[in-house]
Design a protein around this nucleic acid. Structure first.
Lengths: 223, 223
DNA sequence: ACACAAACAGGTATTTATACCTATGCTTTG
DNA sequence: CAAAGCATAGGTATAAATACCTGTTTGTGT
């Protein structure tokens, strides 16, 4: 008999975490060796662990602790660096195509939307354990689309939001005008508008309302 | 021995639904007699059911089917009318105080935030079954605050968004300008701006970004 | 029948946001 | 070193949103 697949779960919503555990228990090939309610402490906790998980299921929309940035994407990047042997399976409520590709590019081995069924969870984990990755057709398409965008030389591709742009975006979502943001960041209004224009381009939005939904979707701001 | 508490679950995310079921199974006083992935069909399904649930757990953020409006709030109102004997326990990811009060006012018997722990789920269901309601301190405070707002005579209270305002709000969130909304709704731009002004007042927002977050928070639009 | 709120429409004025440009100093990366 | 992206700042225009008003019609509830 093969040894069990060691699974870790990083998910802030306790109810959901318990739910996943309860589902995984149905198959006795899984063993839950690690749990965390936030992304912030995961690396530290893993370093103290002797029995590392083979696969870590990570919620994309982890809440930020204090002012620290620690979304599922940040954690994925950190894991790829410090624990490359651990495979990352992303769990997300959203269905953002750009973000799927972004995550896979940054070291995630699979992407599951939270409205999938338990069987798909099973399949995803087994596929990652055996073949190293689980890419369903939807995610595959997202990656291809993302590639296609980059292939086009003319169109400025979304290299994703720069730190400064993210600051402007956050303040914009908090109902601050460009003038107020300029004051807060000690920069010119022109610069703020420049950042906003770049944001509109990068996110493909027409106006600030698009920026707000983008920010919420991608967990740049929390509700 | 007392008879089991019959529980129904209305939740679109299968994984979460399975999770809740898995948790409830831990206590043998619960019996799951009903399940639905959408709010739209719940009333119909219940009418065909002989063994009605005592308590229905309803996800607040149910996705709308087609153009039909069927959020947790709509379902709660419909249930209160057609099946007043079924107690409604709301499950929500958000923590919006106004919405809590609104739901309780419209017939919900309890409100649980999704990041609560399994024990609280147990307590909530048992409390509703035995005492008819489960109001924790946070929800209680929300109701009190909501009451307090209404007590103030001067301040225009949020009588909540009128249907037309909601239409304008939705289109605004979809990045349409006032002109475009006017065209779509066959009304004057002036009227659209009037609705927008009212929305700003009612929601206490400074600009459209505030409207978008309000709409998302209150599930008027989905992500 | 009256009060009230919603939906509608209009006006004026100001403030913000957006669309296009250019341009420079500074990193990072190939 | 060259190329690229970032952050900065500026200009010129127009489009859009917001802050104030006034008013009519219609339907609903008391």
């Amino acid at each position: 008999m093969k040894s069990k697949i060691k699974v870790g779960i990083v998910e802030d919503q306790l109810l959901f975490r318990e739910g996943i555990k309860a589902i995984l228990i149905n198959w006795d090939i899984f063993e839950i060796v690690f749990e965390s309610a936030d992304g912030f402490s995961v690396i530290d906790k893993l370093e103290k662990l002797t029995d590392l998980p083979d696969i870590l299921m990570v919620d994309l929309s982890l809440p930020p602790l204090d002012k620290k940035e620690y979304s599922g994407l940040h954690l994925t990047i950190a894991l790829a660096e410090k624990f490359p042997e651990i495979k990352v399976l992303i769990l997300s409520v959203h269905n953002d195509e750009n973000f799927m590709a972004e995550l896979i590019k940054n070291g995630a081995h699979g992407y599951l939307v939270k409205d999938c069924n338990p069987l798909e969870v099973y399949q995803a984990i087994v596929a990652i354990a055996e073949k190293g990755s689980y890419i369903n057709s939807r995610v595959l398409k997202a990656i291809q689309d993302s590639m296609a965008k980059k292939a086009k030389p003319g169109k400025k591709l979304l290299t994703y939001i720069s730190p400064r742009e993210e600051e402007v975006l956050k303040l914009t979502c908090q109902q601050f005008t460009a003038d107020e943001i300029a004051e807060k960041l000690f920069i010119s209004v022109k610069t703020v508008n420049g950042h906003r224009n770049n944001l509109l381009l990068k996110t493909g939005s027409r106006n600030v309302t698009g920026l707000v939904t983008f920010a919420i979707r991608n967990n740049i701001v929390q509700l």
